[in-house]
Design a protein around this nucleic acid. Structure first.
Length: 668
RNA sequence: GCCCCCUUAGCUCAGUCGGUAGAGCACAGCCAUGGUAAGGCUGUUGUCGUCGGUUCGAUUCCGACAGGGGGCUCCA
């Protein structure tokens, strides 16, 4: 046994190995690979675990240097920036208590309890930012320390929230919260802390950048109230949100994306394009649709209905209010009451606005005996439901109190379930693709701790859902235990044009309602059997889907959905009769076209049409009158096209509408 | 519901360190008939969100309320 060799060998992601001196850290390794890498490094991944750059390496480790330019690196930068903010807040408001300060998508936040019930306002942010810049300029180290639980409790004697995390104690619900525990690696024998200065130390599992000097491209964005553990019965905390990036251009890029999202905001587009608004006189979350908005809605619904009818669905219609007994039978009054409007008393009975259509569809099913020969039965309805959403969660058309669901309920024999789910998911994707949505991600939610029905039944249905996902070839993740108590489900999400994720469709198997309503059908064996039931919303809600389409397309909807598809602009009054003839020819062919008389200069009329995002502006002047042509100014086109024959344009428009395309796609 | 911010003409916003208001767009009229993103002139428009308080006087300061926005384990 001599001295150990002076060097150790570690593996790096490109498959090669490198030799470094025994006792070297990840940081040393980065430096040995390259100056640039060392400068950009913020953390390391050793054998798959994210660690500080200061971590000592061991023989045979697989080491990946994490730079600020990758997702894991940005997470480290954001988390470290949140510590800097906490230190700054403590400096500005001595006595503040720290709750948690995680990295989130695009940024970070930190929750505080301020002394004397003080609250943050926007005006506090510049002072905190200034202090943060001083901390960053001081290039303070992040020093990791490991403590026992008792040492941790002593160190954070003045920080009750930190103590609660350390103790891993129960929340008000009486259950330990694994997320909070993970925050400080509680559960291991020790907790870890990161110290920046003799005064400032924070409980944290890390990792962090080596020194605050690595940070600096950040901005504090807003203040908000929050609750400890997100529970409004627990103390209210003061939250500050910020964003942080690896470089100034990355930060600028993010701020630009925010502006882009602002530009696409469906509420803004709704009023700019004269589609809908929310009159305060009617109440929060209750939109009115103007002529153009109602037209777009109708086009969406018409298309959807046609597709459903072509795929074996039957349209049904049900009332908006019902006696309470129906929702007692369904069980909604016991588990959904918080989202229902208060009851109305009429003629000795109690009525409710309907929050869900399913019980009514069930009554249609139950109206007479059913044979296996009829199954599957697929009922479809644009059913308007009313749900009491708390005022604070309302948001434009995406969160309203009166919701038109494109709701379907499928009743099938148990041996039909898998096939139904498979064709149903394929149908859902087909319809969404027709609206130009192409990037899908799904989530499969499985049996929760509390559930109704049989385990075997759940397993079978969950497998059927999984096989539908496999057949549809879309990426999905499994959310273990996230299903509702009565059903496993698939949620389909889409990515929009700027990469945002929206939840749209839900496919849900139901183990509860067929039993509660004692549904049956007579099988080939002349015995009575229980049908299986699938709930399905495709758009989710017409209102929300409308909002998502508007944001996805930034208001420039595909031509088939535009309220006005083309507008004809005579160059001067003398061209008005020809313009009228062009308009009438196009309108006669079934398109939505109008004329804009020469009461204003051409440029002004073109501009107005562009702001309205019209697919086509057709300018007609003397040349066109002579040649039977139009000047075509297509949305998104770089140049106008002169002298296009009217018939050629008509063919192009027909083709584009038939294929549900957009002028931007160059469909001709 | 709770925390922060906002509320001035139809829209976007300025303004008054307390003496009851202004711009652009829109709208109306007239002129201009212009080949592809704002032609000119003239004119109209406001209980300065509501109610209360302080004040000789409040759109401005204070309070309450209403409406809107952001947030309340980034999770849908």
């Amino acid at each position: 046994m001599g001295d150990p060799p002076p060097n150790i060998t570690v593996a790096v992601p490109d498959g090669s190995t490198r030799e470094v001196a025994r006792g070297s850290t990840a940081s040393d390794l980065a430096a040995s690979i390259g100056k640039r890498l060392a400068a950009d490094a913020v953390a390391a991944e050793v054998n798959g675990v994210l660690v500080d750059l200061g971590t000592a390496l061991a023989e045979g480790d697989l080491v990946r240097i994490i730079t600020g330019g990758v997702d894991e690196g940005r997470t480290v930068i954001r988390h470290s920036t949140s510590h800097v903010m906490a230190q700054a807040v403590l400096a500005v408001y001595p006595g503040a208590r720290l709750a948690i300060g995680p990295a989130i998508e695009d940024g970070f936040y930190y929750d505080f309890e301020l002394p004397e019930s003080k609250r943050f306002s926007d005006e506090d942010l510049p002072a905190i930012e200034e202090k943060m810049r001083a901390i960053i300029a001081a290039d303070q180290p992040f020093v990791r320390e490991e403590l026992s639980v008792d040492e941790g409790l002593a160190l954070f004697a003045d920080q009750p929230f930190k103590r609660e995390i350390i103790a891993g104690v129960a929340t008000a619900h009486g259950a330990a919260d694994p997320d909070f525990a993970a925050e400080a690696a509680v559960g291991a024998a020790a907790v870890t802390t990161y110290r920046n200065t003799p005064e400032f130390v924070d409980l944290c599992r890390g990792p962090h950048v080596p020194t605050t000097g690595r940070l600096g491209h950040f901005r504090l964005t807003r203040v908000a109230g929050s609750y400890w553990h997100g529970d409004e019965r627990l103390p209210q905390l003061q939250r500050i949100y910020g964003t942080a990036w690896e470089s100034a251009p990355a930060l600028a890029d993010y701020l630009h994306r925010l502006e882009e999202a602002e530009r696409r905001d469906h509420r803004r587009l709704g009023s700019e394009l004269d589609l809908f608004h929310f009159p305060p006189e009617i109440g929060g979350g209750l939109p009115v649709f103007h002529p153009k908005g109602a037209l777009v809605r109708q086009l969406m619904e018409d298309f959807s209905l046609r597709m459903h009818l072509a795929h074996g669905y039957e349209q049904v219609w049900t009332p908006h209010i019902t006696k309470s007994t129906l929702y007692e039978s369904s069980g909604h009054l016991s588990w959904y009451a918080a989202s229902m409007y208060p009851p109305m008393e009429m003629e000795g009975a109690t009525y409710y606005l309907k929050p869900m259509n399913c019980p009514m569809h069930i009554l249609i099913y139950k109206d007479r005996g059913r044979s296996y020969r009829e199954l599957p039965l697929r009922y479809f309805e644009f059913g308007t439901v009313y749900r009491f959403e708390r005022s604070g969660v309302l948001h434009g058309l995406t969160r309203v109190r009166c919701i038109t669901q494109d709701d379907a309920h499928i009743f099938c024999a148990p041996d039909q379930l898998a096939g139904e789910l498979r064709s149903l998911l394929a149908f859902v994707l087909e319809v969404l693709r027709a609206f130009g949505l192409t990037e899908f991600e799904a989530e499969l939610s499985t049996r929760p701790e509390k559930f109704v029905g049989e385990v075997a039944e759940w397993d079978q249905a969950t497998e059927a859902l999984r096989s539908a996902l496999e057949a549809a070839e879309i990426p999905y993740v499994v959310a273990e235990g996230e299903g509702a108590f009565y059903a496993p489900k698939i949620d389909v999400h889409i990515r929009d044009a700027i990469g945002r994720r929206w939840q749209l469709s839900t496919l849900q198997v139901d183990f509860q309602l067929p039993n509660r309503f004692d549904l049956g059908f007579i099988g080939a064996d002349n015995e009575r059997h229980r049908p299986q039931m699938i709930h399905r919303a495709l758009f989710g809600s017409v209102e929300r889907f409308f909002a998502i389409l508007l944001e996805h397309y930034a208001g420039a909807l595909p031509t088939w959905l535009m309220p006005i598809q083309a507008r004809v602009l005579p160059v001067r009054d003398a061209n008005a009769p020809y313009a009228a003839a062009v308009t009438s020819r196009l309108a006669g062919a079934g398109f939505r076209v109008e004329t804009d008389e020469a009461a204003e200069p051409l440029g002004a009329r073109v501009r107005r049409g562009k702001l309205e995002k019209l697919p086509y502006i057709l300018v007609v002047g003397d040349d066109d009158e002579r040649d039977g042509s139009v000047g075509v100014n297509a949305r998104g086109a770089e140049a106008v096209e002169r002298g296009v024959t009217l018939e050629a344009f008509l063919a192009r428009l027909s083709q584009e509408v038939a294929t549900r395309g957009r002028p931007e796609d160059g469909a001709t």
